[in-house]
Design a protein around this nucleic acid. Structure first.
Lengths: 339, 339
DNA sequence: TTGTATGCGTTATCAT
DNA sequence: ATGATAACGCATACAA
């Protein structure tokens, strides 16, 4: 009688002795009055048959799927995962399910990802993408569906945007280091080209230097080039003088890892030889040397906020694109104290 | 003319001057002959309209969705993420999309997760769940859909199973430590109750001890109880004697982190005071002390294998449940050498 | 080989 | 207030 063992709305209607339309109304339009007699009969039938509406049929007919497409630049990146975690949680709580698409750092697949997800009628997108390329030129590419950007902006996209307050975070980091007597700062970042968050942090670093008597440099650390990184660290070390200590700022956890490896190679000690503060607060930060000072991003909140943002739009919220910048939290450990 | 800007099969049919059925056949049953004339007309129309079948409508009608439900115990766990990564990749490559459900370590939601995913007509499940509770008693709960278990078995579930070869891995770890002169071993694991992988590793540890002149103990490390852990490590340290060194085996990366924190608290040195090998090979392992020796799990392969396994079943592969045990790789670093 | 008609499970537009 | 009925987009018996 019932395909795949599941009760359909027709079964419920029959059991309750009413029409399918009535059952559908009972489920979706609780606000409209329906005679208490019928309502209770439908309710009983639903309970007895353990009926659950088929979301796909609902999506086909009604146009909305209660699905949210989450596109992530690289699921190997702990930051992406942390955001994903918060977003998925908020979606679940709001009755949405997440469809995941991992780009694996392949910018060329952005379009493919969006199309695939749109095919499944996702109601909206959460995008933590690469930023390079103009694949997502505009709403056109999004099939008219709302989206929220996380961490990285896209030029020309009029969507909500959620990220760390990079400027404030950088101020906190620099301020802390300067207070500790550090006067020679080196900001190490992954190559900034095209990635808005990296550009913003680099710019913020520059801005933080202006006010004070501090020398700052920026170093772009590429994936395989550990020699250049070693050289930069050694040069920084040489610039340190009494009362004018030197410190490294790492732009994210990936850089932090590279720096930690380099320090080990070079036999340099965090805190003693070079101060250190890094963006992102990985679980292992306390265990490296005297403990690495960090700026902890509220990744969970970022993910939740992004999802909430999107869901508000899905519920009809109008208005210009919003920017939600969440504050980071400075975690002071040995690497920015010793010496 | 077209809702939501997308071309439908009807549009293609009209453009090609054929019936919808013909278009559908052209798309799905390439094998059956269709007159070259019509075929080319349909092909042209498809290309011109940039037509893509609506997967939801297809699922509703045909019963299959090309969706795979991935239920993960805790997305905060790097192991889960690593597996997820491999699985998602393989699914994408095979033309499947992943629907994600994170349990957030809440075993009570297993059933909810399966039902929600089944509602969207997922074709099958990849399950990396908690193992506790009998929520997934049997195929009944899976709505008749095939599933593959990752890392953790469920009693009474007749499904394929993919995991690390725990016994071989434990042998490699113990063998390496014994070769290095370690005779007092302490295996530290998260509480094993109900979790098959933890039980198996613990059992394997016991098996490895029998053959040789080695003293072994097992310690279950609970989340907040760092005092007990400290005590266990100190006791182990005391048991070490000349020519009979002591070493810790950590059951996974979570435990490794706890042990590393404890060693720091206690002022003990890896390699010197206590040997160490841990399951899982987190990126930060080389940076702790002299480098932590580990057993690297082929997480990516595990995820890919699980997905492949499932997809084979979806393609109709019959036969009894398979067990795929993948080998780990011993990574020797300072923690198991020094002293 | 191709077209017609029906069903998949819902929602929504009409009547009543 | 409730019940027929037509979409939604596609696949598939069945007919031709």
């Amino acid at each position: 009688m019932q395909r795949s063992g599941r009760a359909t709305i027709a079964d419920v209607a029959e059991a309750a002795g009413v029409s399918k339309a009535t059952v559908s109304r009972f489920l979706n339009h609780r606000e409209r009055l329906l005679s208490p007699d019928i309502a209770s009969r439908v309710e009983a039938a639903v309970a007895q048959l353990d009926y659950t509406p088929n979301p796909m049929a609902r999506a086909l007919s009604h146009g909305r799927s209660r699905l949210i497409g989450l596109i992530v630049a690289d699921i190997a990146n702990p930051y992406s995962v942390a955001v994903l975690r918060g977003a998925e949680e908020a979606c679940q709580a709001a009755g949405y399910l997440v469809m995941l698409f991992n780009l694996g750092n392949d910018a060329g697949r952005e379009r493919e990802a969006i199309d695939a997800l749109a095919g499944y009628q996702v109601d909206g997108f959460i995008l933590n993408t690469l930023g390079r390329g103009t694949a997502l030129a505009d709403a056109e590419a999004l099939h008219g569906k709302p989206a929220v950007l996380v961490d990285r902006r896209h030029a020309g996209m009029h969507t909500d945007f959620v990220a760390l307050d990079n400027l404030a975070a950088m101020r906190a980091a620099c301020g802390h280091l300067v207070e500790g007597g550090h006067r020679e700062l080196l900001y190490i970042t992954e190559p900034t080209r095209g990635v808005s968050s990296r550009r913003e942090r680099t710019a913020a670093f520059g801005a933080c230097l202006k006010a004070v008597d501090v020398t700052g440099e920026v170093f772009e650390s590429a994936l395989g080039d550990s020699d250049a990184l070693d050289a930069a660290l050694l040069a920084l070390r040489r610039r340190a003088r009494r009362g004018r200590r030197a410190a490294v700022l790492a732009g994210n956890a990936v850089v932090t890892l590279r720096v930690a490896a380099a320090m080990q190679r070079l036999g340099l000690r965090f805190g003693e030889d070079l101060g250190f503060v890094g963006f992102d607060d990985p679980e292992w930060a306390p265990l490296i040397g005297p403990g690495l000072s960090t700026i902890a991003q509220p990744t969970d909140a970022i993910g939740r906020t992004a999802a909430t943002c999107l869901i508000e739009r899905l519920r009809g919220l109008e208005g210009p694109p919003r920017q939600l910048l969440l504050p980071g939290a400075l975690q002071v450990r040995g690497s920015s104290l010793g010496g």
